[in-house]
Design a protein around this nucleic acid. Structure first.
Length: 262
DNA sequence: ATGGTAGCTGGGCTA
């Protein structure tokens, strides 16, 4: 079994210990990280290498930043989402990962723009970014590989993915244009792994730090793992691990995990 | 209606 996880850690320096602790207990083969909030050189690579992970890192000063940790060797990497050479925000990293027996998967760590306030140029940037993701995902899917696009999409796909949908209609995470942009990506032939597994209970992946959102379970489901048909054919399970959100000094997001039959 | 929290950075932005 191959497990691939995603976790927006909201500063890897603040979350280094929590991240190491979770890696030790959950032991995913691949972990896609978002919101590193540090430059590439500042990434605590040694901590993760000591736990047996290879690291592909795209950092940025102050904001954003994405990485892929893998127990298996990392080959070619892509460190920018194609479609706008003027976009310098560190929101996309992709890696080819070699598995035993000559097999491989392609995984991307995705940190889509938030887009608030809406409407504003930030929403325009979000929608344009998702449009670029759609075009690039179309090209990736043509390879017909096991492809995993994991990350913080900053999209609430359905009303039941937010504690109070009526209060979120104008928010960039739930506005119709945002959900449509996400659906267009799915419609290329990608599958939301958590939805495919139809697991019960809370599906939230994010709880705001403010106003006791965690205690009240006022959450959102905005972190998603999308699978190509070849990956979906190997899907054995998907789950959201709420535990790290309950730890001291938590990220506001918690990990999502998929198991692929390899 | 406002502010409530967290992180980076050293005031305001981002979320």
């Amino acid at each position: 079994m191959l497990t691939v996880a995603t976790w927006n850690v909201n500063s890897i320096k603040q979350r280094e210990a929590a991240c190491a602790a979770w890696l030790k207990q959950a032991a995913p083969d691949v972990l896609c990280l978002q919101e590193l909030k540090c430059q590439t050189e500042g990434f605590p690579r040694g901590t993760f290498e000591d736990l047996g992970y290879n690291c592909a890192v795209l950092g940025q000063k102050s904001f954003n930043g994405v990485a892929i940790l893998s127990k298996y060797p990392i080959g070619e990497t892509v460190t920018a989402l194609p479609g706008d050479s003027g976009d310098d925000q560190a929101r996309y990293i992709e890696a080819e990962i070699s598995l035993p027996g000559g097999k491989a998967i392609r995984a991307a760590s995705i940190y889509a723009p938030n887009g608030n306030p809406a409407p504003s140029p930030k929403l325009d940037y979000k929608l344009a970014w998702l449009g670029r993701l759609e075009e690039y995902a179309r090209a990736l899917l043509a390879y017909e590989e096991v492809l995993v696009l994991a990350g913080d999409y900053n999209i609430i796909p359905r009303p039941q993915d937010v504690y109070n949908p009526a209060g979120w209609t104008e928010d960039a995470l739930f506005r119709l244009e945002s959900r449509q942009a996400f659906r267009r990506v799915l419609h290329l032939g990608l599958t939301d792994a958590v939805m495919a597994c139809d697991s019960r209970g809370s599906q939230y992946t994010f709880w705001d730090y403010q106003a006791g959102a965690w205690q009240k379970d006022f959450g959102l489901r905005i972190d998603h793992i999308l699978l190509s048909p070849q990956a979906l054919g190997r899907l054995a399970g998907a789950s959201i691990d709420r535990k790290p959100r309950s730890w001291d000094k938590p990220s506001d997001h918690t990990p999502v995990v998929v198991s692929l039959d390899f």
